[in-house]
Amino acid sequence: MRRAPLASWLSIASTVAIWLVLIGPLIALLLKVSPSQIVTALGQPGALSPLGVSVASAFIALLILVLLGTPLAYVLARSPRRPVRWLEAGMLLMLLMPPLVIGLLLVFMLGPLTPLGGLLARVHLSATNTFFALIVAEVYEAAPYYVLGAQSTFVGLDQGMLDQASLLGDTPRQRFFRISLPLSLPQLTSSLAIAWARAIGAFGAVIIIAYHPYGLPMQVWTTLNEVGLQRALPYALVLLVVSLPFPLLAFLWSRHARS
């Protein structure tokens, strides 16, 4: 009789163990929260407004990322020039910086007494405790995930294929929209999905410059502080429910599209 080698048992066991450890908090959450608790918590007057705030702000943040981040990623990927490498280093710095620190630095950059804050005030915008501030914080927290992901996608495009498109008569613009973009779409969607999860869950920079209006993460935090764990959990569950399906679907779709 042939016995399965020890190594394969070990690898299966460690895979299951790691999976359980990673997924454990989610299982705990589902065990702790009963459906009636969710209904009660969300049935309170005004309880759903953080959900609206989070979804709307994350959606706008993503829109900004797509419009500004995609061209930036394309330039980062396609240009061999040295200044572009500095841009890339800057993006990495933002990715590595703790969100709390980003929030503090944003106060120094956009606070009411700064030159940029003054400019914003002229157009009746304020980057402190406003919906606008929330969007700014979310963009800062999510941008590196989208831009660096998109950049690596664009880097991976086959130069020979792009050259062929040019020789077949495509201007650089036509080539971008007819070849680069469609071929990158699955991976761009994956990057965008990660950015969505980061934006809607943004907390570190948000707590510093956009304490109000409450999005879901702030709602979880204040409920936890003021009422307690049991009342905060339903909001955590809602946060998971709105932040996770899009990334999951995007991953599944991009895997399907790539195969």
Partner: peptide, 20 residues
């Protein structure tokens, strides 16, 4: 002159068909 204005045809080692 940029490549798209040259009207030069290229057949290379790989067929370089657009997969989508």
């Amino acid at each position: 002159l940029p490549p798209h204005e040259r009207r030069i045809g290229l057949i290379s080692q790989r067929p370089q068909l657009f997969p989508h």
